[in-house]
């Protein structure tokens, strides 16, 4: 009988002492922190992708709370919606930013770009690009080993085994920019998603002279300048034998696409042309 009693008593005393100790420690070692950081963090996606420029979501929340305004603060993954809600919590105006998406500026599929050697090292773009130009004659194009896909936390970019090129899934891409940073050839650009997801861009970064570029890849931009002449809005510039469409000036009229002799200008998500069917 006493054994049971003593046991219970001992447990009670131990429990009470431990509770007191914990309570004291909680007070003593309490770290004062802006309570809004927790609130802001709970609004963030929690992917810790680093697209905002901070190490993770918590750091971004802390940065938002200590900043004077939300100017330049942007969570690419959460988008304008999340920023608006953060603004509401902090009593600040969220900057209005266009939603963006990652765009791969290479169209050198296996059929367009014949291989002239065989890579036999670790299948990693950074390794291959530190070693040499790549498996094809084009020193600018995609190496196809998928560093971008490995860098994406959302599964938003994958290598298509048929073309050997990365493909962006518009539903999953948050434009955090991890893939763009991972690409040693700097092929990936973050462009505005565009109205109704209509986009027009030059899918090539080859800066060689037309003949050389064409020899390496049939889908290359050869720097002929036809698109520049065609564009009524001065949205296209030609530098180092390479055309670039400024997304802010482009009106998506698609005249450049029709003028391009190699098909290097890609138009995505436009409805099919009526003439094609007739």
């Amino acid at each position: 009988m006493y054994t049971v009693l003593y046991t219970l008593l001992l447990l009670l005393v131990t429990g009470a002492l431990a509770a007191l100790l914990l309570a004291w420690a909680a007070k003593k070692f309490r770290v004062e922190e802006d309570p809004r950081i927790d609130e802001v963090e709970s609004l963030l996606p929690g992917a810790n992708c680093g697209g905002c420029g901070q190490a993770g979501c918590r750091q971004f929340a802390a940065a938002c709370c200590s900043a004077g305004s939300l100017e330049g603060m942007q969570c690419p993954t959460g988008g304008a919606d999340v920023m608006k809600r953060i603004g509401a919590v902090l009593g600040m105006e969220a900057a209005d930013v266009q939603p963006k998406i990652a765009v791969v500026r290479c169209a050198g599929t296996c059929s367009a770009r014949p291989k002239n050697n065989q890579f036999d090292g670790l299948r990693n773009c950074a390794v291959a690009s530190s070693l040499y130009a790549g498996e094809t004659g084009c020193a600018f194009g995609c190496l196809g080993f998928g560093d971008c896909a490995a860098a994406c936390s959302f599964g938003g970019i994958t290598i298509n085994p048929h073309t050997g090129l990365p493909e962006v899934n518009p539903d999953l891409c948050t434009a955090c920019g991890s893939c763009a940073k991972a690409c040693p050839k700097h092929l990936i650009e973050l462009r505005p998603r565009g109205p109704k997801d209509h986009r027009l861009y030059v899918a090539c970064t080859n800066r060689e002279k037309g003949a050389e570029a064409r020899k390496a890849c049939t889908a290359a931009c050869i720097g002929c300048g036809k698109c520049v002449k065609e564009c009524a809005f001065e949205a296209i510039t030609l530098q180092d034998n390479l055309a670039y469409i400024d997304p802010d000036k482009c009106r998506l009229c698609r005249k450049c696409e029709a003028a391009c002799p190699t098909g290097a200008i890609h138009a995505v998500n436009f409805p099919p042309k009526k003439t094609e069917q007739a």
């Binding site: 002239n116 050697n117 065989q118 890579f119 036999d120 090292g121 670790l122 390794v127 070693l131 040499y132």
Partner: peptide, 8 residues
């Protein structure tokens, strides 16, 4: 045939 390229 195509040459094999690999790091040393």
């Amino acid at each position: 045939e195509k040459m094999i390229i690999s790091p040393s």
